[in-house]
């Protein structure tokens, strides 16, 4: 786990859900999660500080994205969300693909909302607030929910979803001008300049994903951005295991894969034993060439040291 960029998030989850990673739970267990939607700041590559609204376990220092939530299939999960956003903004907690028990779905400013569901199908789910017609998502109110199957070390009940290393990859983008004025910004003028994996752009995505040659690497893509995002993986193909938390039939192997906005996709790559094309390893990057960190106007616009939605997989 050395340098694992999701280490912090996973620790938060373990606290919140009271479960060990990869634990096997054959019987339904109650899982209680507390989240708070709260303003904060995120530091972009290059040092710029951008206002965000994010989810946090307590009402301080929200992350971008929010904590990774995990449950095991059969668990009854109760999520309590506190709304600490400025006045005038109701917060909801939505997970496409999950059916909640009936009840209030929105927390007024200063209030809370509790949503309950049974984790019935394993997979990768994107949670988000649906408030303000997308503005809250654009501000950062999103995160990953992972429902694990009963069998440890697999993404789904099928044995071909077994993996050795996993990496949730929450894809999103930021237009700092919008974040500076989320209530008044004209969305027709929205133009993202930061392109993020788990809230970071390169080089802040370093040290990347560590996996040894021959290990099966599970990449859990979650597209929290507005753009259908195509990610290129150099030096290996990845097998598509599931889309939107539902296993797919057959073994489609891809090198450039589109994750639609709002969708999730799980792929498993067997990491080659040989060296990657780069001295940093095997690049995984936004093939739509969203590799900028903020404004990039110049004769040679992209940052020479690399930027944007880029991360390396290395031994």
């Amino acid at each position: 786990m050395r340098g694992h960029p999701w280490k912090g998030a996973l620790v938060l989850v373990l606290v919140a859900a009271g479960l060990g990673a990869g634990s096997s739970s054959a019987s339904a267990a109650p899982v209680a999660v507390s989240l708070c939607a709260v303003p904060g700041t995120a530091t972009m590559a290059g040092g710029a500080s951008v206002p965000i609204w994010g989810f946090a376990a307590t009402c301080a220092n929200p992350g971008l994205p929010g904590p990774v939530l995990t449950a095991t299939v059969g668990d009854t999960v109760t999520v309590t969300v506190t709304n600490a956003l400025p006045a005038g903004h109701d917060v909801t907690f939505e997970v496409p693909g999950i059916d909640f028990a009936a009840g209030p779905d929105s927390a007024p400013p200063g209030g809370t909302v509790t949503r309950t569901f049974t984790a019935s199908a394993p997979g990768t789910y994107l949670y988000q607030s649906g408030g303000d017609a997308g503005r809250q998502v654009a501000m950062g109110l999103y995160g990953a929910l992972i429902v694990r199957p009963a069998t440890a070390g697999q993404a789904y009940p099928s044995a071909d979803s077994a993996y050795d290393v996993e990496a949730p990859l929450v894809l999103s983008a930021i237009d700092p001008a919008f974040n500076a004025a989320p209530e008044t910004f004209d969305l027709h003028s929205y133009r993202a300049t930061y392109w993020l994996i788990n809230g970071k752009s390169y080089p802040d995505t370093a040290p990347g994903i560590t996996a040894a040659g021959g290990q099966r690497l599970l990449l859990r893509y979650l597209n929290a951005g507005y753009d259908n995002t195509t990610m290129s993986l150099l030096g290996m193909h990845a097998r598509v295991v599931a889309r939107d938390a539902r296993p797919v039939d057959g073994d489609a192997e891809v090198a450039a894969e589109t994750i639609p906005a709002g969708a999730t996709e799980d792929v498993i790559a067997t990491v080659p034993a040989g060296a990657g094309p780069s001295s940093h390893g095997f690049p995984l990057y936004n093939r739509q060439q969203h590799v900028t960190n903020g404004d990039q106007t110049g004769v040679s616009p992209a940052p020479a040291s690399g930027g944007g939605m880029l991360i390396f997989i290395h031994h």
Binding site: T230, H237, A255, T258
Partner: peptide, 23 residues
């Protein structure tokens, strides 16, 4: 096929998105 790999099952299309960097 996509990206130089056969699909598990051939699929028929009258419109298909060819994504950036895909074959």
């Amino acid at each position: 096929a996509q990206d130089g790999r056969l699909l598990p099952v051939p699929t028929e299309h009258f419109g298909e998105t060819i994504a950036s960097g895909q074959t």
